[in-house]
Amino acid sequence: MKRQFPLVITFVVGMLVIVSQFIPHQPFGHLSDTLESWFLIISGFAILLGQLNLLKVNIIKIHRKVRNWQYYIVCVVSFVVMITIGILWGTQDQPGLLGQGSALVSFFGRKPFDYIFKHFFENLSATMFSLLAFFMASASYRAFRARNLESSLLLISAVLVMLGRTTIGTWLTGWIPEDLTYLHIPQIANFIMKYLQKTGQRAIMICAGLGIVGSSLRIILGIERSYLGGK
């Protein structure tokens, strides 16, 4: 019952969604929309579950005093502070339990939630992702060693795209006459992005799409059950 019934639900819901796409009449007409709105609500709860699980895992780590446990206190405090101010005074366009918090708005210049978002979250996320630029430099060194035809092609197309997106790329081939513009590096980079890059992406997209269709069928028919977890 604990495993069989969820499989039946998956089958019924999955089939209803598929059937409703082909039959635009009642009772199937609005079924897909209804299920999608349900899906959105349950997914919302799933997101909350993820955040609460993060809190639970961190509290357990602090309680058990695992290695570097002190840092997890920072995470828990940041999480609780963000949630508390969000619930109490709301976000930019949403009032919280204590209303709009106009006194705090005049103090911070914006709502406390938005203040933290702008000065903490935005800076941290942008810096975290820009940090990847440095690690990509070392990754490029490993990936771009021209050992065979394939890695040489990877190197050439990457270098051309990178050069084509910078001023140096324009400068390098700027002397080439106007009637030979197709030899300009920015033009070559554009050609690569427009056609050559698209071929690979399209092939992957079609094949991955077929893979998704196969996996969806396996899930709906109950062949794939790993999402239920446990034994």
């Binding site: 997101i47 995470c75 999480f79 996320s125």
Partner: peptide
């Protein structure tokens, strides 16, 4: 970053 991100998405 982790705490604030999680809190942001929660709200």
């Amino acid at each position: 970053f982790v705490g604030i991100s999680a809190g942001y998405w929660f709200i």
